[in-house]
Design a protein around this nucleic acid. Structure first.
Length: 533
RNA sequence: GCCGCCGUAGCUUAGUUGGUUAAAGCGCCUGAUUGUGGUUCAGGAGAUCAAGGGUUCAAAUCUCUUCGGUGGUACCA
């Protein structure tokens, strides 16, 4: 026998996981509660396929057969025509249609499929030339489901398959929609069960950051890297990424990374951007202005005090003012939604307001270290949606709740509800009584009570009781020959047996007499209904 | 991806100047227990010490490689 003989054994793919009933219960609750809030604001529930044409999902078109850029992609087994941007079949010199196995990708978020969905809906009027950036139709939908990312390194709590519940508004420039998105996030957090002051919705506006950087002359810089002059967008992204880390590496670390670089606690050297002193001190002024500020009004005051004449900056400032006014009128105070001028969010596609929900709670890991979960929701305005598919822009804003992160937070901070009761359990004593067991089960189900009849091959009563116990059944019904003849049922209250006061009982008979009772068959359904309530 | 640490029963861990049958708690299984889940008591199964190579008379222990985990860092649609 060859030692290297290829075999099969049960295992799962790295970064994927099985979800047990407890976690499923929590996840279902999060999704249900969030969806209720979304619907309250008028969002409709849409669903889209898990797999899309790779070119429809965005810029991640693999040109090799390997998976790159963090997306699961593969060739469609089916051969299909190649199309032009206008949807016409592409033909070769012999006028026959060019066929190809197109690249497919598993969705890596719910926004890219939204862009495709929306584009398809407006496709006809786009083709007729009736669609401009000014008259994009309004579309508001929410969606939840699994998304997939091929993460190279799997940090704890990060998976390759995870859930999002997302809502978006397409077709409006009005930042009222962004303010509304923040209210929705706050409402959703509280509907799910997070207490006031244990979370905060942080809001910023990309225009403020961009305008500020422009004002201090960042975009006039000519920074060279290996002889190549860097694009200003690249530099903007690089600076924003560093600013985003201010919570983690503090002002000092940010300034070092903007300058000559620094060495972190692990000893790793981080190369700095080596920006001129004037730029660094400008950013320093900006960041240090907001230390110890507790209200949105004060933030707006500080931003106004900069007295900056840059148009983009002031546009952003006006947007924040409008958002603040709206929130204030409706009563969303600083303890729920706060402005955070240092908030960036990684993604390059954000164009205006950005928001993020952070948990303020900490927990101790198994080694006793104090830890925090970090951002549990994220979103913002992205006015470039649909550009990839139609060549014109649609203004859009929306956000997503990281369902798995939030579930983890609830479990780590012991905010998950107790596991729901399992079914009423009917013990299998005697094959001949099966019709009676089934009859009782049907009656209970008709009364709206979940009921299970035991079918297992391990028929020892002890095994059956342990099975019911593991399934968290509240009640077990015992009907043997004796009970059947006498027209009674032994009802055992398993839930009561788990009660702490019962744990002190040493005597077996005493224990049993307290939790089990004989009930007349004709009163059974009523009796159980009362216990289950 | 880069740097550091770790990998011993299902889980949590003990086990170094390399030296008999690798230890414990929890969990699991069997019985006392009566057709009866908890508690109590008695007993039992379960580990090629992550995998593969090297050094040695001798490796869980030293060394190399790979894989997996973890703490940073980078990236993140």
């Amino acid at each position: 026998m060859s030692k290297n003989k290829r075999g099969v054994f049960p295992r799962k793919i790295k970064g994927f996981r099985d979800i047990n009933p407890e976690l499923n219960q929590l996840r279902t609750k999060i999704i249900t509660k969030a969806a209720e809030v979304y619907r309250k604001y008028g969002y409709e529930h849409w669903d889209t396929p898990s797999i899309e044409y790779a070119d429809n999902l965005g810029k991640y078109m693999p040109d090799k057969d390997t998976i790159e850029e963090g997306v699961y992609s593969f060739r469609n087994p089916e051969n299909e025509p190649v199309y032009t941007n206008k949807g016409e079949e592409l033909r070769d010199n012999d006028n026959s249609v060019i066929m190809e196995n197109h690249y497919l990708s598993m969705r890596y978020d719910l926004t890219a499929p939204l862009a495709r969905l929306y584009s398809e809906k407006v496709w006809q009027s786009y083709m007729q030339g009736n669609l401009t950036e000014k008259n994009m139709p309004l579309f508001r939908r929410y969606q939840f489901g699994k998304v997939f990312r091929y993460e190279a390194k799997l940090d704890p709590g990060r998976f390759r398959e995870f859930w999002q519940i997302d809502f978006d508004t397409v077709g409006t420039n009005d930042v009222s929609a962004d303010a509304e998105a923040c209210m929705i996030l706050s409402d959703a957090m509280e509907a799910i069960g997070l207490k006031r002051n244990t979370y905060i919705v942080n809001v910023n506006d990309r225009k403020i950051l961009k305008g500020f950087l422009e004002n201090i002359g960042v975009f006039k810089l000519k920074i060279e890297d290996d002889g190549k002059i860097l694009q200003s967008e690249y530099l903007e992204q690089a600076i924003l990424r560093i600013i985003d880390k201010v919570d983690k590496i503090y002002l000092k670390g940010v300034l070092e990374e903007l300058g000559k670089g620094r060495t972190d606690i692990s000893g790793a050297k981080i190369i700095g951007l080596d920006l001129p002193e004037s730029i660094i001190s400008g950013i320093n002024n900006y960041l240090s202005a907001f230390e110890n500020i507790k209200t949105r009004a004060e933030i707006i005051e500080k931003l106004t005090e900069f007295n900056i004449t840059n148009d983009i900056f002031n546009e952003g400032l006006e947007e924040l003012k409008k958002i603040d006014l709206l929130l204030k009128n409706i009563g969303y105070k600083d303890d729920r939604i706060m402005f955070t001028p240092t908030l960036v969010r990684g993604m390059a596609y954000y164009t205006g307001p950005v928001f993020e929900v952070n948990s303020l709670q900490t927990y101790k890991d198994h080694k006793g270290r104090k830890r925090a979960v970090g951002a549990i929701c994220g979103g913002g305005r992205y006015d470039g949606l649909v550009k990839n598919l139609l060549g014109i822009k649609a203004p859009a804003t929306g956000a997503s709740i990281g369902v798995d992160r939030l579930a983890e937070l609830l479990m780590l901070t012991n905010q998950n509800d107790d596991l729901e009761d399992g079914p009423v359990f009917i013990v299998m004593f005697d094959d001949n009584l099966m019709p009676e067991y089934q009859k009782i089960a049907a009656e209970l189900r008709n009364a709206g009570i979940e009921t299970e009849v035991y079918y297992g091959s391990q028929k020892q009563l002890k095994k059956q009781m342990k099975y019911a116990d593991k399934k968290n059944s509240p009640i077990a019904l015992l009907i043997g020959e004796n009970e059947f003849k006498e027209g009674v049922v032994t009802v055992k209250n398993l839930k009561l047996g788990k009660d702490k006061s019962m744990q002190t009982i040493q005597d077996r008979n005493e224990w049993q007499s307290k939790i089990q009772k004989q009930v007349k068959r004709e009163n059974l359904i009523e009796y159980i209904s009362k216990i289950i309530k």
